[in-house]
Design a protein around this nucleic acid. Structure first.
Lengths: 210, 210
DNA sequence: TAGATTGTTAATCGATTAACAATC
DNA sequence: TAGATTGTTAATCGATTAACAATC
């Protein structure tokens, strides 16, 4: 099976294509050209066509792309044509905010359990989700076969917890702690640190704050 | 004034260098080589030296870099040698979580006000921060000269609100809504959408969820 | 058919890596 | 001095853009 590796930077753009296509479908558009889509996204038409061509030819010359078909194809490519179960580790403000986030369910993302060590929150509910004690983390994740975890716990516990998650089969981690996790290459991590994002922005604010 | 433009991808790495250097300082390290730093970060020594060389020569041949000096230099480059005032727009779960986040203050990020339109939350406090009505947004931001805003409001209100912020001088937006904002080039935006991050991760989870 | 737009190849651009003289 | 490590240049690698034949 010869399979060309698709660059990660291409993969990173596909969810945004999908997002915009979904908007367009809502607006009642049935067909779009790479040009139209690129204007909405702020990219170039050539880049969109090149990105899609890694996976096949989804358009028709002279016509463009079927919005519905392209949505389906992107969902298939990104493995979104199923429901993914996700656990949230850390039931603080951020973990609870994410667990209650309405945007997950309609995108096939199901938060199944939260974990924490604080006896004051263990046993409580966040929306319809039960907060379990972190001692049950391994058994619960293995029982359900969960592959994705969101980390929203204190920095000190991040690496140890990530190691435990990986030990029981977690393959993807969305890391909201300010810790650069050291994990096997086979585990995929995305880090979201508001401080890093803000510092990046601050570079461009140059000299003077009024 | 001839000033070479430093690639954004270089800028995006500097906050992580700084973060790691701060850890190293805490551990009592005084001097490091690009090699040591790169191992901690999971990058290459050549990349670190190249990135830093855009801004000057901060090391000593044969010796490496002074941890303290490099921290100072990076803080200066990123404009972190001052306190930045930030407003949070949207006092939902996520906005409140971010406002209460302890990691901001120690990094010179000061949340000064939150805004919302819901009469049930306007007038309440989140930690020591008052939630003001969005009607006061323009006057408050102008009064304080705030340049940075964090958007944590419903998708429907995102574009309109961003336009209003830009109108009164906001130059940088950390956007937690799933909306691709259309703003003047002079305004810098970082988007953080958990759905996009998770979908990116799902690509790599391939065929089978147990 | 004529016009439009794809998919792909080739050209360009930019970023990363390697290598090494300079020098602490 | 000998060893280590920087800062920088040149080489390589990869990503983006441009161009156009294919074709709907």
């Amino acid at each position: 099976m010869i399979e060309e590796v698709v660059p990660d930077i291409v993969i990173s753009r596909l969810p945004r294509y999908l997002q915009t296509l979904n908007e367009m479908a809502k607006e009642g558009l049935h067909t779009i050209s790479s040009q139209t889509l690129s204007e909405r996204l702020g990219t170039t038409a050539a880049q969109i066509r090149k990105d899609l061509s890694f996976f096949g030819g989804f358009g028709k010359q002279g016509m463009g792309y079927s919005v519905y078909n392209l949505i389906e194809q992107l969902q298939r490519i990104l493995n979104l044509d199923r429901i993914w179960q996700v656990v949230v580790v850390g039931a603080g403000d951020l973990g609870r905010a994410l667990t209650r986030y309405q945007g997950f369910a309609i995108r096939g993302i199901e938060i199944v359990t939260m974990f924490d060590v604080d006896p004051k929150v263990v046993g409580t509910r966040v929306g319809s989700i039960m907060v379990c004690h972190a001692d049950e983390m391994e058994s619960e994740i293995q029982k359900r076969g969960v592959k994705i975890a969101i980390l929203t716990l204190p920095a000190e516990a991040a690496q140890v917890t990530a190691d435990r998650l990986v030990n029981v089969g977690v393959k993807a981690i969305l890391n909201y702690t300010p810790v650069t996790l050291r994990l096997p290459e086979s585990v995929h991590v995305q880090q979201v640190d508001p401080v890093l994002h803000l510092q990046h922005l601050m570079y461009y604010l140059g000299g003077n704050q009024a």
